[in-house]
Design a protein around this nucleic acid. Structure first.
Length: 701
DNA sequence: TTAGGGTTAG
């Protein structure tokens, strides 16, 4: 029986010797409870005065920071065993409410049933408070059927005109997902109070129907219905979700004017809303002005930074949070891990993982998925698998995270095997799962499998390919050298190809030296994405690859004339938990001179192992030796040199960069891994390269 | 005594 958890937690302590304590209905520590109890017994008040009896029950059972399961247990045993005055609805109401508030709705329901049994023998009848509180417990437990039968009692007992009963029923139906039933009841309420509206709106919130929340609020304004902070919390949240910055802003201004931002929940909802509407700095200003910030407020601010791709700031503010009394919870850690994943901040993320274990934070499916994704995005695929296996519950997001992780770490076969296991586990794949599957195929040149999965996606799962799926297919065909087929594939697409799709083709043309289709691809890209420097560089490199130097130079000139700047290459490396950032030709670092000396030493050493600089990707307007110097100062070579200087011999060097690894850096890094006997893991904008013993996990593909 | 609220992953 569910009740046992609380009720049998402690036996009734022996009554202490009588003492002259006068009973006052204050919250009592458990050691005081038997004393008070004894005093009331002695004076006879406990059995003769229902007033005193109820005050004692309340003081003992109603949750306060000092209340424990033992308090609840004590009160319930008193109710059951006595002695006490004749019981009334109020006696049961106090405990039903206390159990609900203490987070034991199942025990509250059980007590309600007990009350119905007692009703027959002791003439105790549930009142409207009983019904409202019991319905709340049903809502908390998502016990829709039980809720319906409690409503039947309410009808039988004639409580259906009571505002509290109605409001709790609306809330119960709505939070159990039966919004239609909630709406039917809502419509029957003649005098709708602010709580009635709020209960209905909360129902749409629970069901993620954000548009309806906003519509309902607009309807409220029209009929001049009353609203309060609670209403605005729901509406602000909805504005954030659907990006209605206009209404969100109005609510923000209104709440400021009326001083409602003193309400912490509303302030938090507004912080979240501003962040989701792209007004991150506004969110921060409000956050900074909050009088008290609990874990939810901190989490909202951190996730705001993470979702806006300002991950360094997310980690900075997380550090600030740790200087406070507020402890992070599982939700906080989801955002922190996702920031670490984006930054490739392995040490920080590992620390988060150990914190989760140490504090026994619940490994929810969301947190576990974030962990899997974090390890995979840091190139630690074995740890990602371990995290995956440690999860008690996995869903399609979890499987997808690992499939994508496998794919981008060059383990396409395993990604496809995982996909089969996922199907065997009866987890439905989503559109994103198929992006992982197609990535696995394209990174591993599995053309036939790719074609099959692409077709099966629609035929077997009814998932219609999005532009990303087409992009993967073009990439797959193009990498495999099937340039004409890739080109034809784009022409046959039922949706408009975007610049990404064309760029995949252009990139394949560069690798496979196809000038004609490369030119066509660039022609298509220019109107779609005229400012992306990569387009011009790819075609220029295509010309260069077949020796058409004049055309190559022309393209670069055209790019300069259009004022398009090459995106500077940038590499990040994390050492001892600090992230260092390097740009090509960087001289910002205080140890610049030593780093450049290390680069020279590195290049000399790998030249002896057979390295020949590949200057195809270098600037074209300088002579060969300058080109060689220029490629040797690419950001990842600087970062690797720094990593060699600063880490202990044999330690793995991990870096992440914003562009794709160039051909020269790729061949140089292979040799560095061999000459210096280091494993080097490089995350580029598309995938991972695990360099070891002179080889790379991507097989140069 | 009694009803309603904010943060999270691929």
């Amino acid at each position: 029986m569910a009740t046992a958890a609380v009720v049998s937690a402690a036996a009734l302590p022996a009554a202490p010797s009588p003492s002259p304590v006068r009973y006052t209905p204050r919250r009592a520590a458990l050691r005081d409870v038997p004393q008070l109890h004894a005093a009331l017994l002695k004076s006879g008040e406990l059995t003769t005065s229902p007033e005193s009896f109820h005050s004692f029950l309340e003081a003992t059972a109603l949750p306060s920071p000092a209340t424990t399961a033992a308090h609840l247990s004590y009160a319930i045993r008193l109710l059951r065993l006595g002695p006490h005055p004749p019981l009334s609805a109020r006696s049961y109401n106090i405990l039903i409410r206390a159990l609900f508030r203490a987070g034991h709705p199942e025990d509250a329901l059980h007590l309600f049933v007990e009350m119905l049994d007692a009703a027959i023998a002791a003439n105790v009848c549930p009142d409207q408070h009983t019904i409202a509180n019991t319905v709340k417990s049903c809502a908390r437990m998502y016990a829709l059927a039980t809720g319906r039968s409690v409503q039947a009692y309410a009808v039988k007992l004639g409580f259906m005109a009571d505002q509290f009963v109605l409001n709790s029923l609306i809330h119960m139906y709505a939070s159990c997902g039966d919004v239609a039933a909630a709406q039917v009841l809502f419509n029957t309420v003649e005098e709708k109070g602010v709580v009635t509206w709020n209960a209905m709106i909360a129902g749409y919130v629970k069901n993620g129907d954000w548009k309806e929340v906003v519509e309902m609020f607009k309807g409220m304004l029209e009929v001049q219905a009353p609203f309060d902070e609670v209403t605005l919390v729901s509406v602000a949240t909805a504005c954030g979700k659907i990006g209605d910055s206009k209404l969100g802003e109005r609510i923000g201004v209104y709440a400021e004017e009326k001083g409602m931002v003193r309400n912490r929940n509303l302030a938090t909802a507004l912080v979240d809303m501003y962040a989701k509407c792209g007004e991150l700095d506004k969110a921060r200003r409000l956050f900074d002005r909050m009088h008290s910030r609990d874990v939810v407020a901190w989490s909202a601010m951190i996730s705001g930074y993470t979702q806006a791709d300002r991950c360094r700031e997310a980690l900075t503010i997380f550090n600030e949070m740790q200087a406070t009394e507020v402890n992070p919870n599982d939700v906080t850690m989801v955002s922190v891990l996702s920031a670490c994943a984006v930054l490739g901040a392995l040490e920080m993320g590992k620390w988060v993982h150990s914190y989760i274990r140490r504090k026994a934070l619940p490994l929810t499916v969301v947190l576990g998925t974030a962990l899997v994704d974090f390890y995979a995005k840091c190139g630690c695929i074995e740890d990602a698998v371990k995290a995956f296996e440690s999860m008690p519950v996995r869903n399609s997001w979890t499987w997808t995270a690992l499939i994508k992780g496998m794919a981008s770490n060059g383990r396409g076969r395993e990604a496809l095997e995982l996909f089969s296991s996922m199907r065997e586990a009866n987890i439905e794949p989503t559109d994103v799962t198929f992006i992982g599957v197609l990535l696995a195929c394209s990174h591993n040149c599995l053309v036939e499998e790719g074609r099959r999965h692409f077709d099966s996606m629609t035929q077997d799962y009814g998932i219609h390919p999005r532009i990303e799926h087409y992009g993967c297919m073009v990439d797959l065909l193009g990498r495999a050298g099937l340039i004409d087929e890739a080109h034809q594939f784009i022409r046959n697409m039922p949706i408009e190809p975007n610049a990404v799709v064309w760029r995949a083709l252009l990139s394949a043309c560069t690798v496979h030296k196809n000038v004609e289709i490369g030119e066509e691809a660039l022609k298509q890209i220019i109107p779609l994405d005229p400012c992306h420097s990569g387009n011009y560089i790819l075609l220029s490199n295509t010309y260069a690859s077949v020796g058409q130097w004049k055309e190559a130079a022309m393209i670069r000139k055209e790019m300069n004339e259009r004022g398009i700047k090459k995106i500077p290459g940038c590499s990040l490396i994390e050492l001892d938990g600090t992230i260092f950032e390097f740009f090509a030709e960087d001289s910002e670092h205080p140890q610049s001179r030593e780093i450049y000396e290390k680069v020279d030493e590195m290049i000399e050493n790998i030249k002896m192992a057979g390295y020949v600089p590949n200057t195809a990707d270098a600037r074209l307007d300088v002579d060969e030796s300058e080109k060689q110097v220029s490629v040797s100062h690419h950001s990842e070579k600087l970062a690797i040199a720094f990593g060699l200087m600063k880490s202990r011999p044999g330690a793995t060097i991990r870096l992440s960069k914003n562009l794709r690894v160039c051909v020269d850096c790729h061949s140089a890094t292979k040799l560095i891994s061999k000459v210096y006997n280091r494993e080097i893991v490089v995350r580029d904008r598309n995938r991972f390269h695990h360099f070891k013993d002179g080889l790379c996990s991507c097989n140069d593909y």
